[in-house]
Design a protein around this nucleic acid. Structure first.
Lengths: 189, 189
DNA sequence: TTACTTTACGAACGGTCGTGCTATTTGTCA
DNA sequence: TGACAAATAGCACGACCGTTCGTAAAGTAA
């Protein structure tokens, strides 16, 4: 319950706003009562990030395993990725993305947990793409890591367009970009 | 001088860390002496964002005007974009990108200034791409707004890869992605 | 019921936050 | 030189920060 509230707070206003006081008020606990569960603010933030990362894996990758391996699964991952914050009740944006920018120059365990999450994300995406190559749906020699890099960029542009600019066509633009990415890869040398 | 220090602070640790106290310490002024220049913390943050936006325009778009209109100019914009934080002495990341994520769900003048900056960025990019279409270097009917959306994504993925993940090949991946984007657009129906 | 652990609370600490006052210094122009 | 404006400093305020400590309630096992 505490971590759910922590993720909601981080989604709304970033990890900087994830303080003992605000979270105590949000959960109805006292500051010291809440504090005792974690021992430090940093431990609280780490727990929240790990929970977000697990939620991401359950919401994006796990259901995509039911799609056929290869491009159908790759597309399922992408589609769940676009919608995962809504599906998870994080109505105000991806807390992991926000944290990645807040902590990208602050060494410490929080940063390391974030790096681990995004490394895992990259690896899982590459694996799904590699299966598409093995299935013959993408040319042999396709650079799966490059495709994963570009897919990440499309999702970030989608976040930016929908959250900051409030563009209604953000999802359409993202899907168009992803289709072009896959079809360009499909027709490469 | 104050605003230079403010941008350096925002680049290092985000706009949340741009407080009166830290900026006073960084500049050598007293808190109240610094405060008098702006009247409120929000005015300080707005001034810093406007300065960053001007710096961005001067560093990315202004020099690209010396490249020939069309694709050479588009490529010049992209190349300066990748390097603009280094060129501007903001060694720890783009403060406008960080601010966009911190404030994307906080209505107010700060958010509006950020939206104005990214709208301007999008328009300028579209204009350069439209010139490339007029020059016959991209097919008639090319969706310049879509290309600008995807270019933004590539830059965001580059930021992520170089700053959080510390990947040495981030710039190479970004250039590969941009080349593929332009060539795919060039061979479209 | 008794002993013990878990969980939560209230109060307090030193510190920083933004902001408002009142001086005091600095610069400018007559 | 003197008057006046701009810039800066010093100090205090209420609020919130993370954290610690002592204590009371709740749950658990004997």
């Amino acid at each position: 319950m505490i971590l759910d509230a922590a993720l909601a707070q981080a989604s709304e206003s970033g990890f900087e706003s994830l303080t003992i006081g605000t979270l105590a008020a949000r959960t109805g606990l006292s500051k010291s009562g809440l504090f005792a569960h974690f021992g430090s603010r940093e431990e609280l933030q780490i727990a929240a990030i790990d929970r977000a990362a697990n939620l991401f894996a359950e919401t994006v990758f796990a259901p995509a395993l039911q799609a056929r391996r290869g491009l159908p699964r790759v597309r399922a991952i992408f589609e769940h990725w676009l919608q995962w914050t809504d599906d998870s009740g994080l109505a105000y944006g991806c807390p992991l993305h926000a944290a990645a920018i807040e902590f990208d120059d602050k060494p410490g365990p929080i940063r390391e947990h974030l790096v681990a999450h995004f490394d895992r994300l990259q690896r899982n995406l590459e694996r799904a793409l590699t299966l598409a190559i093995e299935e013959g749906q993408l040319p042999v020699g396709t650079d799966a890591a490059q495709l994963a890099f570009e897919a990440l960029g499309i999702v970030f542009a989608y976040y930016h367009s929908t959250r900051l600019l409030r563009r209604a066509d953000a999802a359409t633009r993202a899907r168009t970009a992803f289709d072009r990415l896959l079809s360009a890869a499909g027709t490469a040398a």
